[in-house]
Design a binder for these strands. Structure first.
Lengths: 106, 106
DNA sequence: TCATTTGTTTGATGGTTGTACAACTGTCTC
DNA sequence: GAGACAGTTGTACAACCATCAAACAAATGA
C-alpha cells in the first residue's frame, strides 16, 4: 500500500516506454517543440519538421502512449501539452536507479 | 564538490547517445546491475543476463561510448563503474529541455 | 610455449522502427 | 450532402538493432 515517493506516477512499463520515446532524436525534438509553447497545435509540428503528417501522427502517438504529452481537441484541430510531472518523474527514476551508488542494503 | 552547471558535462551528441543507450530495457538493466555494485565485473553480467558474452560486450560498448560507465582493467578481468555525474547531467538536461515550460525568451 | 580463461570483433539473422503513400475518419462550412 | 481541411490508420519498405556463433585477441599460469 505505501505509494513510494516520486515514482508512483509512472505506471508499470511506462518507464521503458518513455525511454524508447525519448530515444529518437526527431521525436525528442518534437517534444521540445511542444514544450516550447504552452499549447502546440499539430500544424506547427508539420511546419517545423520535414516529415509527412503520417509520420508526425505516429510520433505523437508514441509520445501520448508514453504519457509524455496530452492531446487536446479544439474543434477541428488538435493541440498538445507536455506532462511535466511525467518528465520529472522519469528523470527522477533514472537518477534513483542508476544515478547514485546503490545502498548496500546492509 | 561543486559540480558547476549540469549540462556542460555532456559533450555534443552525447545526450542523444545516452538516450539511445537507455532505451533498450536489457541494456538499462545491465546499467542497473553495474550501478548496484561499486565495481561490477563483467562476469557478473554474464551470470545475471541470459545472453551471450558477445551481446554483453556489445551493450557494454554502447554504455561506454555513451559515457555512462567507465571500464577498469584488473589484470585478466574487467570491471565497470557508473558515471553518476553523467547520469545526473542527462536527467537534468531532460528536465531542462522538456521538464518545465520554456521561458518565453522575454 | 602451450593451454585456459576472459573479453572483443565479425558475419549473419530475425525483429523493430522511422518513414512515406494512400485510403480512411472526423470536423467545419456552405 | 458536398467540398475542404486536419488527423489517423494500413501497408510497405529500408535502415537500424539486439542477438548469436565462431573466429580472434589478450592475459594468466603451468
Amino acid at each position: 500500500m505505501n505509494p513510494p515517493a516520486t515514482s508512483s506516477l509512472l505506471a508499470p512499463g511506462q518507464f521503458e516506454r518513455i525511454a524508447k520515446a525519448l530515444a529518437d532524436p526527431r521525436r525528442f525534438a518534437m517534444l521540445e517543440t511542444i514544450s516550447s509553447a504552452l499549447e502546440c497545435p499539430n500544424q506547427a509540428l508539420c511546419n517545423d519538421f520535414p516529415v509527412s503528417k503520417a509520420t508526425i501522427s505516429h510520433h505523437i502517438k508514441e509520445l501520448v502512449q508514453a504519457g509524455l504529452i496530452e492531446p487536446e481537441r479544439e474543434g477541428q484541430y488538435k493541440t498538445y501539452r507536455v506532462r511535466q510531472d511525467v518528465v520529472n518523474a522519469y528523470a527522477a527514476e533514472v537518477i534513483r536507479r542508476v544515478g547514485k551508488p546503490r545502498a548496500r542494503a546492509g
